[in-house]
Simulated assay, not measured.
Amino acid sequence: MNLKQNMGTVDRALRAIVGVILLALVFVGPQTPWGLIGIIPLATAAIGWCPVYLPLGLSTCGKKT
């Protein structure tokens, strides 16, 4: 399986922010275990590849020259 990056810098940054906010829900605020879902956007931001983009043919990476 080819894990070619399909996420741009802005996409990765937004996912990282959302992931941290969701994980914070585990420790502060409503302290709900649903905040563990934040691991998913953090992981995809870290590797730069989103599995949902693949079947949809999406990519937020800029054009390579």
Rank of each mutant, 00 (worst) to 15 (best):
L22H: 08
I21E: 07
V10D: 00
V26I: 11
W34R: 07
V20P: 00
G35R: 11
R15L: 09
G35Q: 09
L58A: 02
V26W: 08
V26N: 02
V52D: 01
A43T: 11
I17C: 07
Y53A: 10
L23H: 01
S59D: 13
A13V: 13
A24V: 02
D11K: 09
A13G: 00
L58F: 13
G38Q: 03
A43W: 14
T44K: 11
V20W: 03
V20L: 15
A45K: 06
A13L: 13
T32L: 05
M1S: 11
G62W: 07
T60G: 08
G62F: 02
M7K: 03
K4Q: 14
T65A: 15
T44R: 13
T65F: 12
L54R: 15
T32P: 00
G29Q: 12
G29F: 10
Y53C: 08
M1F: 11
C61V: 12
A16F: 14
L58N: 00
A24Y: 12
W49D: 00
G35W: 12
L14A: 09
A24C: 10
V18C: 06
V52E: 01
Q31F: 02
L14D: 01
Q5I: 05
S59M: 07
G38T: 02
W34N: 04
G8F: 11
D11M: 08
K4E: 14
P55M: 05
A13T: 10
T32A: 03
P51Y: 10
P51E: 05
W34H: 07
N2Y: 04
I21V: 15
G48L: 04
N2K: 13
G62P: 00
K63H: 07
L23A: 01
G62L: 12
I47T: 13
P51R: 11
